[in-house]
């Protein structure tokens, strides 16, 4: 079912058309997204900016198959989530999407390497293979020596690097990061961005990142500006 990658490999990785998301809070309707249309090619590094409440996280949750749009079309790698079950979406997330969150979202009381292995457990890989891949991912973010540290024994920047390793470990098609540096100081933020840049340039990983900071956004090759649920600016410096 999910092996359609080859067939669609010439299409953009992400195709979004007239995406609308409406939340219902009792009687009140909150229009979080008001018709977004855009596409993202393989290997892009996109920074999404915009005021608080402009719909950035809502958009990213839909891109990550964590949420469903109210209307409109979204294709990832040619796959449309609309008619897929909860479990099938979980499978796509597991195979194709890596998440990095502002709050790191690591499991406490669980070592770095075990955190990184988490997606592989649900991919049903044998433990030896899991360990191997997790070690590789931790090396890629420069944290091999911290494999057996628990989150509480790591600095914020290190925790975010573990989270990035976890997002990478399954070799996903896309890395989605919602304010990955929001909880970090500027120096550590720079280190995280350096990792993102390297992953994008050397490994060709597609990255979509939300940020509030201009200098962080500057690491991206394309900047998309959200305002009141719409895209008001889309600037691609790579072109």
């Amino acid at each position: 079912m999910l092996n359609q990658k080859i067939k669609y490999s010439m299409d953009p990785l992400i195709q979004v058309r007239d995406l609308v998301k409406v939340y219902h809070l009792g009687e009140v309707e909150v229009q979080a997204l008001l018709g977004i249309s855009l596409s993202i090619e393989r290997g892009e590094f996109v920074a999404i900016m915009g005021a608080s409440g402009s719909g950035k996280s809502t958009f990213m949750n839909i891109l990550g198959f964590l949420d469903r749009p109210t209307r409109g079309q979204y294709l990832l790698d040619g796959i449309e989530g609309e008619h897929l079950s909860r479990d099938e979406l979980a499978e796509i997330r597991n195979e194709k999407i890596g998440f990095v969150f502002q709050g790191f979202n690591l499991l406490n009381r669980t070592s770095a390497i075990e955190n990184v292995q988490l997606p592989l457990i649900y991919a049903q890989l044998p433990s030896k293979k899991r360990k191997e891949m997790a070690e590789k991912a931790l090396s890629a973010v420069g944290l091999k020596e911290r494999s057996h540290h628990h989150p509480a024994q790591l600095s914020g920047g290190e925790q975010q690097r573990v989270a990035i390793a976890r997002a990478l470990v399954n070799q996903p098609s896309i890395l989605l990061a919602d304010e990955p540096t929001g909880n970090l100081d500027s120096k550590t933020s720079g280190e995280i961005m350096a990792i993102f840049k390297r992953l994008n340039q050397e490994m060709g990983i597609t990255i979509v990142m939300i940020t509030h900071e201009q200098d962080i956004a500057a690491y991206g090759k394309r900047k998309i500006l959200f305002k009141d649920g719409k895209v008001v600016e889309d600037h691609n410096s790579a072109l």
Binding site: G64, L66, R86, D87, A90, E91, R93, N94, E95, F99, N105, L106, L107, L118, P119, Y122, A123, R166, N170
Partner: peptide, 15 residues
Amino acid sequence: REIGIRIAVGAKGKD
């Protein structure tokens, strides 16, 4: 939150 993380990285309902 732990459950959310697990579901986000690919845990299915039955997991």
